[in-house]
Write a protein that binds this DNA or RNA. Structure first.
Lengths: 148, 148
DNA sequence: TTTGAAAGCACCGGAGT
DNA sequence: ACTCCGGTGCTTTCAAA
């Protein structure tokens, strides 16, 4: 699959939208030196091409009382399919993301919990579902994210 | 810090904005059964309280030719401060996110690269900077993310 | 692929229930 | 708290280059 080619102005628009996804076309137009209609057209085009898959809101989960973040590495029995892994992990509401992994372990799960007891409980829940044969949990102390 | 309390309508609004961060107030108003002004006030309030930290665009990096995603666990020499870890990792452009971690390892780095050679090169770069004394890389085969 | 303008909406403040 | 309303500004489409 040949990558979709962006010129410098497309990159500028993506950067502007990453910093503020609700920025208006009329606000961006003078910043990139094009008319409002041209900006709209470019963004529609990137949406159409699937480069832009959508827009979303950024939420501070700690402010809502979900202050603890952790990654858990899961190892499964040899007979477990990716579909089984996904169906057992993704139905746990504390799980934010699941990455299936090449190599000796099988999945890396990103989760958010309220406190340590809650973390313990979620890990137990994950160990109980399906054919988990081993876990290792990394508690996040701090995080940095590229302009998100 | 006591968590900010959301009622059912606030949760609905957050869900709507997670699915489409550019949804208009007038579109959301009838869906939650309030007036446009009331919706705006609630969202302004959540912004003010820091629950909503912003809005952003979702990008399909694979479509742009950055098709490979990986996590690298980094172990540092005992004298390394968190500031040193962040300054050495975050200036690598392929690094998307850095999590500092409790326990025997020190950081988990999320990165995006174009291909395997590129991955190799970035890992070497990370091993070269600062006081890295060990790495372990998990290549992502697939991923799932809660409504993103 | 761009600009420019017109019509339709959305936003946002204030006053009132 | 919410609703109604009016002024302002943004979005969207289309003709034209």
């Amino acid at each position: 699959m040949t990558p979709y080619e962006l010129d410098e102005i497309d990159h500028q628009l993506l950067r502007l939208l990453q910093a503020d996804g609700r920025r208006t076309f009329s606000e961006m137009a003078p910043e990139v030196g094009l008319s409002v209609a041209a900006v709209k057209r470019r963004i529609d085009r990137m949406r159409q091409a699937g480069v832009i898959t959508g827009f979303t809101v950024k939420i501070d989960h700690a402010k809502l009382g979900w202050g603890i973040e952790a990654f858990t590495e899961l190892r499964y029995a040899g007979t477990t399919s990716v579909r089984d892994i996904l169906s057992s992990t993704t139905r746990t509401p504390e799980v934010q993301a699941v990455f299936t992994i090449a190599g000796d372990l099988d999945a890396l799960v990103h989760m958010r919990v309220r406190d340590i007891n809650h973390l313990q409980e979620v890990i137990d829940r994950l160990r109980g579902t399906g054919k988990v044969i081993g876990t290792r949990t990394l508690m996040v102390l701090g995080s940095w994210s590229r302009e998100d």
